[in-house]
């Protein structure tokens, strides 16, 4: 349907546009919208649309049946598991480190160094990070060998390093710094008067953490943990470099579908998987945003 051939459309358009052409002001944003249209919105549409198109070309949800297959389901569970564990551990250790930073001089060298380093390391991942751990606690790694020389065998029941536990440990390397970066603002919002008020009202250190600092920080802590979950859930490069066996977690399943023959035979499945991942991350990030808003009212 073209606008010119439809008098009703023309009639409706006139009062809206006031009879004028598109204002020139809008030209300023055209390049940006064309660009994100092609490289962000179009791919997103391809994913959504592609996941809804069955092998025979009709619209169906059959692609999502593929996620129900046992090996696929297993990788989904693995992904959730490793993301949860690395998020919870990362959040705990990260919060401790953030606390140590926040209780120091706010303009001091230590704080600035730690924050800068955290900014770098939080983005770290992939082959390089995997190498670093292989060189440390791999079977030829310096720490592994050193412990072995001192009579301690790190892997008495088989090498867990090249499996999910190893991956979880490596994830902590970028999860902890990310936690420091996102949790510090909440800690900075805690005012020294609150501790002093608690003390003068008869409360102990335990009371302060139990009734004041704990409840104040908890929403932010929970929100940051969710962010860490999304971060681990989306991570691909590190797993690809470490895990020799394919398809153990969701991103590796997507990789397998993109690069192998089985993938080209069922193009809808990769898109359905991608959409499922986006959905999980979207839900988690929305909850994160919600909790952050709650916190920002308290800790300014």
């Amino acid at each position: 349907m073209t606008a010119a051939g439809n008098p009703a459309f023309n009639a409706a358009a006139r009062p809206l546009g006031g009879g004028r052409r598109l204002p020139l002001t809008w030209l300023g944003v055209v390049p940006f919208f064309i660009y994100v249209g092609i490289f962000l919105l179009l791919p997103t549409t391809i994913i959504v649309a592609g996941s809804l198109v069955g092998p025979d070309g009709s619209i169906s949800l059959s692609n999502f049946d593929g996620i129900n297959r046992p090996f696929m389901f297993k990788s989904f569970v693995n992904s959730i598991e490793i993301s949860t564990i690395s998020a919870v551990l990362g959040a705990i250790f990260g919060a401790l480190l953030a606390y140590a930073v926040a209780t120091g001089d706010p303009k001091g060298f230590l704080r600035r160094s730690v924050m800068s380093a955290a900014g770098v390391v939080a983005q770290f991942g992939g082959v390089t990070l995997t190498f670093a751990f292989v060189a440390t606690i791999g079977t030829e790694g310096i720490v592994y060998l050193w412990l072995q020389q001192h009579g301690i065998e790190m892997y008495p029941n088989g090498v867990w390093f090249f499996d999910l536990p190893g991956l979880t440990l490596i994830y902590l390397y970028f999860q902890i710094p990310l936690m420091v970066l996102v949790f510090i603002p909440a800690l900075d919002g805690i005012r020294p008067q609150w501790r002093e008020a608690t003390e003068s009202l008869g409360g102990s250190g335990w009371h302060y953490w139990r009734y004041v600092a704990g409840p104040l920080l908890f929403p932010s802590f929970l929100g940051c943990t969710l962010l860490l979950f999304a971060n681990a859930f989306s991570a691909y490069a590190t797993a690809a470099a470490l895990l020799t066996q394919g398809g153990v977690i969701l991103p590796l399943q997507v990789q397998a579908l993109l690069t192998s023959e089985t993938g080209s035979s069922s193009p809808g499945l990769a898109k359905a998987l991608a959409l499922a991942m986006v959905a999980v991350v979207l839900v988690v990030m929305s909850l994160y945003a919600l909790l952050q808003r709650r916190t920002s009212q308290w800790l300014r």
């Binding site: 179009l42 791919p43 994913i47 989306s234 691909y236 991103p251 993109l258 998987l273 991608a274």
Partner: peptide
């Protein structure tokens, strides 16, 4: 996630 975007 980048791994999802790459599919599209």
């Amino acid at each position: 996630p980048a791994i999802a975007l790459v599919v599209g």
